[in-house]
């Protein structure tokens, strides 16, 4: 069983941190407007912002490591096998002949770390797109080319 590229932890961490930052700005902005109102406050000013920062920091530090820890994938003879999830552990078996088309994508953060995502599209409904994140970009492209051989012309 293969694991993801360890660098993906940093990407996730930065993403969680950025999200925390946005929420902090919103909540902080709200609290600043409250500074000028004369209402009696239940909690001291800045406590919500503090809470958001604390929870955000915890999530950003913890979740990427856990996510990474539980992510596994393997290319079997005729299936792509994925295992993931911290609270809800999910195993997915995608028969290779069911692949409709393949995408490799890379966002701005992933580009910095030279990582990529492999997106496997099937004709299914609920889990039609299976995403395999955190592959080295070259590897993702290689993987895609490898999988491409299996695309069959099965009629649906």
């Amino acid at each position: 069983m293969r694991m993801l590229d360890p660098a993906v932890r940093s990407v996730w961490m930065i993403k969680y941190a950025l999200f925390t930052l946005v929420v902090t700005l919103i909540v902080g902005g709200y609290e600043i407007t409250q500074l000028f109102s004369s209402n009696d406050r239940f909690l001291p000013v800045g406590s919500y912002t503090g809470l958001v920062i604390a929870v955000g920091a915890l999530i950003s530090l913890l979740i990427p490591f856990l996510r990474y820890k539980y992510w596994r994938y393997e290319l079997l003879d005729e299936e792509l096998y994925l295992e993931r999830g911290i609270l809800n552990r999910v195993r997915t078996v995608v028969p290779l002949r069911r692949i409709q088309h393949l995408d490799v994508s890379q966002d701005i953060l992933e580009r910095e770390f030279d990582l990529g995502k492999l997106i496997v599209h099937t004709a299914g409904t609920r889990s039609a797109d299976v995403v395999l994140p955190g592959l080295a970009y070259d590897e993702a492209e290689q993987f895609r080319d490898e999988l491409r051989n299996y695309i069959t012309e099965d009629a649906l």
Partner: peptide, 15 residues
């Protein structure tokens, strides 16, 4: 012959 993807899942409670 019409199956697409197979999945199992186990939530923290189920485990």
């Amino acid at each position: 012959d019409k199956m697409q993807v197979f999945m199992t899942s186990a939530s923290i409670f189920q485990r």
